[in-house]
């Protein structure tokens, strides 16, 4: 087995895309692994983004005391609440680094203890897509994984990271898997809701579907501010069904575990798995603008390619 040194000295770090998973069991291991990566990136004058769960931020900020302002700090629990929007943030940061003629070094911790299984699946999909999005780009993205996470989540991390390891020792992941295959594996069957409002739609019914979804969400207790987001997402999803999903679709609405779910089912295909994972030009019709908006405004977006087409579930918390 090939064994690499510390993440900071990883093979090819300077020349190519570098995407290691760091497995940590203690705070000390976390600070050692992440801290070394960040300090090394700062020493090399890279643009550094640290997107980790909020409680981890102060620990890392203390570690790089003098350089705190040279790092962009992001609470992943907020920015990455929906795992589907994380990649857009990372790509935007990497693009800005290119503009600033620096390299981007990123710490991205998309899965933490407490993530729901559904969120963990979409975060795993996100991890696989990182490999597609950054192929050939000189970007380093270190992803810390708490070893207290469920076994299946940790197993997926071995499939989505070309390099894995613990502080001090990184190695090529023998279980690394083609990102497209991982994405297919993420298309797990979704649980059937016990009770849902069913609204079939075609182009002529789009406005009444939007109104129906709005009334239903209001009755379910979604606050007005979030209803705006809810409607933006459903409007984009139903329009996509009409435009790209066979001209019509079915909307189902239900409440579960303190959140509202809208499912849009049509005969479409998600041709590009990276669709909607990069900030689009708002004035360009093509380029995944609708999917990107869904990811930005929803708490979780689940995509499933099924035999009959595409299933999309938009989740929005009532809080």
């Amino acid at each position: 087995m090939t064994t690499y040194g510390p993440a900071s000295a990883g093979l090819g770090r300077q020349a190519a895309f570098y995407h290691p998973a760091l497995f940590y069991g203690t705070e000390g291991e976390y600070l050692d692994g992440v801290g070394t990566f960040v300090q090394d990136a700062l020493d090399r004058e890279h643009s550094v983004l640290v997107a980790v769960p909020g409680p981890h931020l102060p620990l890392l900020q203390d570690l790089v005391e003098g350089n705190r302002k040279h790092v962009t700090w992001v609470d992943m629990r907020q920015a990455g609440r929906n795992p589907g929007r994380i990649l857009s943030m990372l790509q935007e940061f990497a693009d800005r680094a290119v503009d600033a003629r620096t390299q981007a070094s990123i710490v991205g911790e998309p899965i933490w203890v407490g993530r729901t299984p559904a969120e963990a699946w979409e975060a795993t999909r996100h991890e696989a897509l990182i490999n597609l999005a950054f192929t050939g780009r000189p970007v380093s993205i270190l992803c810390p994984y708490d070893t207290a996470l469920p076994e299946d989540v940790l197993a997926q991390a071995h499939r989505t990271h070309p390099v894995v390891g613990a502080p001090g020792a990184y190695r090529a992941s023998p279980r690394y898997t083609d990102p497209h295959e991982v994405c297919c594996d993420c298309d797990t069957p979704l649980p059937e809701p016990p009770d849902a409002v069913v609204v079939p739609f075609g182009e002529r019914a789009l406005a009444s579907v939007r109104d129906e979804a709005d009334r239903w969400a209001a009755a379910a207790g979604l606050p007005p501010v979030r209803r705006t987001d809810w409607l933006l997402a459903i409007g984009e999803a139903t329009a996509n069904s009409v435009r790209h999903g066979g001209g019509r679709g079915t909307l189902r609405l239900w409440c579960a575990d303190g959140e509202l779910v809208a499912e849009i089912r049509d005969r479409g295909r998600l041709a590009d798995p990276l669709m909607g994972r990069r900030r689009p030009d708002p004035r360009a019709a093509a380029g995944g603008r609708g999917v990107w908006i869904m990811h930005q405004v929803c708490d979780l977006v689940e995509f499933r390619a099924v035999e009959q087409g595409l299933v999309l579930r938009l989740h929005m918390g009532l809080e």
């Binding site: 002529r204 789009l206 406005a207 939007r210 409007g235 329009a239």
Partner: peptide, 8 residues
């Protein structure tokens, strides 16, 4: 006024 979307 009303609701502007793909249909309109």
């Amino acid at each position: 006024s009303g609701s502007a979307g793909y249909d309109t």
